[in-house]
Write a protein that binds this DNA or RNA. Structure first.
Lengths: 123, 123
DNA sequence: GTCAGCGGTATCCAGGTGGTAACTGCCCTC
DNA sequence: GAGGGCAGTTACCACCTGGATACCGCTGAC
C-alpha cells in the first residue's frame, strides 16, 4: 500500500489546537500523526510537512510513544536509500473509531464549548 | 433528579490508571468525575469517596475545569445547611458518547495494548 | 464552648511535557 | 570534495500538572 496525496502544509491550520479540547489522544501531537497516517504509510520528513510546528525531537517522541503502544509501525528500508516509513497497525487503525467519535463531538459542540469558556471568563 | 446509590469507595479500584491509556478526557481525573455524575448530581464530599486518591485541591481544580467548559454545573444551596452539588450539564452528558466509545475501545484492546508495551520494553 | 463535618484554600514542591538550538552520521548528487 | 537531504540525537530549559501538607471559615450537634 502506498499513499495517494502528499500531505499539505496547511492541513491542520484550520484545526483548533488540541489543547483547547477537553480530551487528548496520546501526547499533544499523537492524534494529528494518526490522521496523517490514515490513508497510507508516511516518511518522517513527510509528516513534518503538515506538522511543521513540531520540532523533530518532539515528533520522534510522539512516534516512539505510538510505536511503543503498538499503534504505529516503523519500517526502515536501508536500500537503495535510507527510507523510514511509519504506518498504522491494525490496532492503530482501530483507534480511528473513538478518535472519529471525539472529533464528531468536538465539531458538533465546538460553539457551545467556546461560549461556555467566554461566559466563564467574563460573566 | 436525585441520585440513587451512594458511590462506592472501590468504584475505580479495578479501573486501569488513566495514564496508561493512549487518550485522556480533560485532566487526569475528569473522566472519572464525569462517570461519578452519570446518574445524578453529587456533593463534593461524595465525589471524594471513590476518588479518594485525589486531594481536595486537585479535585477542585478538575471540577473548575469542567465547569469552565460548561460540562458540569455547580449549585450552592446555602440553607438549611451548606450543600454544594455538582451535576452534568446537557453538554457534559453529551460527552458520555465519545467517552463510552473510548472506554469500549480500551476494553476491547486492553490486552493488545499491554502486550505491545511488554514486547517493546523487552523484545 | 467545643467539636466534627462540609467545602474548600494556601503554600510548596517534584516530575513530566514540550520547546529551542545545535549537532550527528550516512548516502547521493553535483 | 562540497553540499544537501534524510532521519534523527543531544543538551538545555521553561512551564504546567499533579501531589503533599496544612490550614481556613462556616454551620450544626453535643
Amino acid at each position: 500500500m502506498t499513499h495517494r496525496q502528499p500531505l499539505a502544509p496547511d492541513m491542520f491550520d484550520e484545526l483548533c489546537p488540541s489543547s483547547l479540547l477537553p480530551f487528548r489522544f496520546g501526547d499533544k501531537w499523537a492524534a494529528l500523526v494518526i490522521r496523517c497516517l490514515e490513508d497510507g504509510p508516511r516518511r518522517f520528513s513527510e509528516l513534518r510537512v503538515p506538522l511543521r510546528r513540531v520540532t523533530p525531537k518532539v515528533l520522534t517522541q510522539s512516534l516512539r510513544g505510538l510505536e511503543r503502544d503498538g499503534l504505529v509501525s516503523r519500517t526502515v528500508h536501508a536500500a537503495p536509500e535510507l527510507r523510514v516509513e511509519y504506518a498504522l497497525t491494525p490496532l492503530g487503525r482501530s483507534m480511528l473509531e473513538p478518535l472519529d467519535a471525539a472529533c464528531a463531538w468536538a465539531a458538533a459542540h465546538w460553539d457551545e464549548l467556546l461560549d461556555a469558556r467566554d461566559s466563564y471568563n467574563a460573566p
